[in-house]
Simulated assay, not measured.
Amino acid sequence: MRQETSTARSRELGHELRRVRKRAGYSGTEMARMLGWGLPKVSRLESGQREVLPTEITDYLARARATPEELAELVALASGAHNHRLQFHAAGQPDALRTLTLLEARCKSITTYSPDLVPAHLQTDAYIQAVFRRYGHTAGPEFDAAVAARVKRQTAIFTRHSRPALTLYVHEDALCATLDDPAIMYEQLLHLQLSSELPHCRIRVVPASNDTFDSRHDFTIFRHEVDQPVLHVDALTASLFLEDDTEIAFYQEFLNHVDAAALDRHESREWLASRTRELEPRTHVHARRWPQDSRLVHQPR
């Protein structure tokens, strides 16, 4: 039997169908029997390995007692009416996008290039808040929820049973900014130094002196054991998810140039330590302890 192509959209749809089924208390076998399907069809659908008609999704969700909102959203996702490729969100806050969180939960490696900010995966709480204020968000329940969503993303990555390999290319300009308070960047740099010691986390500083390439947006390539890579481009108020081989190849070639220009892992650690020492006198805090971030403790060395 021909293996159907798995895409980020089909895997997301399958994940949601499985969630709704389990919430209803049905096993895969029971769902197959109620629908008159074979169990392999249900299994392939829920794993994202099988495309189905929107009418089949409607039958599935009706049996699983989905809400009207879930029915409308998932039928749209199955039919292609949902714009899975381009998804909108509040400025600088893609963290609650289901597509993004599922990619981070299932990939084997994450490679990010960040020209203006410390990558979201390793931002401290104070840095997150400063960035959100920079984007015009103000204090309140929504602000707190957005910060919590980013912290939740980070925690999920660092506490995964099989942690993904992280390679983070950070432009020097992003590390020289001070945002609201030099103390925020000081502790952020300490956090990066601590993170760089983890075996699955590689931080590479990209010198500002190199001007052979340019990118205006953060982007991340997610790679998987079997499924094709997925590219996430963060365009401030929208996220673009790409899977086309040509598009992936373009960004990979860009990363090859970045990699050639970036400091190696050891040089990057030394750069971070030097920048931290430069910044310390401006923080009015001396003999600071390295932050014991709960997202990094108990990590294997």
Rank of each mutant, 00 (worst) to 15 (best):
E104V: 01
A105Q: 04
K108Y: 05
K108G: 12
K108S: 10
S109H: 04
S109N: 02
S109V: 03
I110Y: 02
I110M: 13
I110Q: 01
I110P: 03
T111R: 09
T112M: 07
T112R: 05
T112Q: 04
Y113C: 02
S114C: 12
S114A: 14
D116C: 10
L117P: 00
V118Y: 01
V118G: 03
P119I: 10
H121T: 14
L122I: 14
Q123E: 03
Q123G: 09
T124H: 02
D125Q: 04
D125E: 15
Y127N: 06
I128V: 15
I128T: 13
V131Q: 02
V131S: 07
V131R: 08
F132D: 07
F132S: 05
F132E: 05
R133S: 12
R134T: 13
Y135L: 10
Y135Q: 11
T138D: 03
T138G: 09
A139H: 09
A139P: 01
G140A: 08
G140D: 13
G140V: 01
G140L: 03
E142W: 01
D144K: 12
D144E: 12
A145C: 04
A145I: 12
A146F: 00
V147T: 14
V147A: 03
A148P: 01
R150Q: 06
R150M: 08
V151L: 15
R153V: 05
Q154S: 11
Q154N: 06
Q154V: 12
T155H: 14
T155R: 15
A156G: 06
I157G: 02
T159N: 07
T159C: 03
H161I: 15
S162R: 13
R163K: 14
A165C: 10
L166H: 00
L168S: 04
L168I: 00
Y169E: 05
Y169L: 11
V170M: 04
H171R: 14
D173V: 15
L175C: 06
L175Y: 01
C176D: 10
C176S: 04
C176V: 07
T178E: 09
T178S: 13
T178K: 08
L179Y: 08
D180I: 07
D180T: 06
D181I: 07
P182I: 08
P182H: 04
M185L: 06
Y186T: 08
Y186A: 07
E187Y: 14
Q188L: 01
Q188F: 01
L192W: 03
Q193N: 06
Q193L: 15
L194K: 15
L194D: 10
S195C: 11
S196D: 00
S196M: 06
E197Q: 06
L198I: 13
P199K: 00
P199C: 06
H200P: 00
C201L: 13
I203H: 03
R204V: 06
R204H: 11
V205C: 15
A208K: 07
S209L: 04
N210A: 11
D211S: 15
T212P: 00
T212L: 13
D214W: 11
